[in-house]
């Protein structure tokens, strides 16, 4: 392991400057649960680690009629301890409570999970399903990118030199909406998703029909996938096993997994369908219980 310098800026501007000045050899660090391990095994060797946890904007956790704001350094435990997030953004709570164990969750952030840009990251499908937008700060000021457009390949994303993630913005949720995330792992803990599926659904007032749905897949392609077509197939359709089955087929069709030590192509494609069924059904159950949202 190589030596590195450490800085803990307290403002966004300062952080941007540090990152920019180091010309690509500086790395932002939130919880460090990915970063430190990667430095340790020599996968990356930054000259400077920029600890972003001391910046106020990155610790914001706010829910209101304009939706939900999650600062990029907010650790998982703060999310799953919030009852309102649990009710309205259940998929996010599912993800935050799955990532690692208690020690990891008290450090690991959703921002870090997204910026690490692993294809199997457990929160990214939930972010996509919930329609989250990444707010990015950089030398040219702030810009926004929909989460489904954020990752570009294994460990790769749209962040340019001097840029970093400030927060994740989620639109407000209405009554009769529900969401869920599930992953398949061979053990019951300590594992990386072999397939992960996040889904968010909006039902009509009767609870019998889908108004809209968003479905996202993890671990079945080089990056997390937004299964837009699968969601569209549900919009305006009755809630039934048959309609969900069709969406599951559409989701399976876009999966392009690989054979590796975590699973085979055959298995991952098959389980994608299984999980879409299970996750959409769970999201529907939750929607039926959601009598009011935070939308104005």
């Amino acid at each position: 392991m190589r030596d590195f310098d450490y800085a803990a800026p307290t403002s966004v501007a300062e952080a941007v400057k540090l990152l920019q000045d180091h010309n690509g050899s500086a790395r932002p660090m939130a919880g460090g649960t990915d970063l430190i391990d990667q430095v340790r095994v020599g996968r990356i060797s930054p000259d400077l680690v920029v600890d972003i946890k001391k910046i106020a904007e990155l610790n914001v956790l706010q829910i209101g009629s304009d939706g939900l704001h999650v600062g990029a350094a907010v650790p998982c435990y703060r999310l799953y301890h919030d009852a309102m997030i649990k009710d309205l953004y259940s998929a996010l709570t599912d993800s935050a409570s799955i990532i690692g164990g208690i020690q990891i969750q008290s450090r690991a952030s959703i921002g870090g999970n997204l910026c690490n840009s692993g294809p199997a990251a457990d929160s990214t499908p939930s972010l996509i399903a919930l329609g989250a937008v990444a707010v990015i700060a950089g030398p040219q000021g702030n810009r926004e990118v929909a989460v489904e457009d954020f990752c570009t390949g294994p460990g790769k994303n749209v962040l340019g030199r001097g840029e970093f993630l400030v927060e994740l913005k989620f639109p407000a949720r209405s009554a009769n909406s529900g969401s869920a995330y599930q992953r398949f792992i061979p053990r019951n803990e300590m594992d990386i998703a072999v397939v992960g599926v996040g889904a968010a659904v909006q039902l009509d007032a009767s609870g019998k029909n889908f108004v809209s749905a968003r479905i996202a897949l993890g671990a079945v392609a080089a990056k997390p996938l937004f299964a837009a077509e699968a969601g569209k197939l549900l919009a305006g359709q009755p809630v039934s096993v048959e309609t969900i089955q069709k969406a599951a087929e559409a989701a399976r069709a876009i999966a392009t997994p690989i054979d590796d030590m975590r699973g085979t192509v055959e298995f991952r494609k098959h389980v994608t369908g299984v999980l879409v069924m299970r996750v959409v059904q769970q999201a529907v159950e939750r929607a039926l219980k959601t009598k009011s949202g935070n939308a104005p």
Partner: peptide
Amino acid sequence: TFLDYRMPTCLD
């Protein structure tokens, strides 16, 4: 690694 060489944990 013990992450991907999957020995059972007590939860299994």
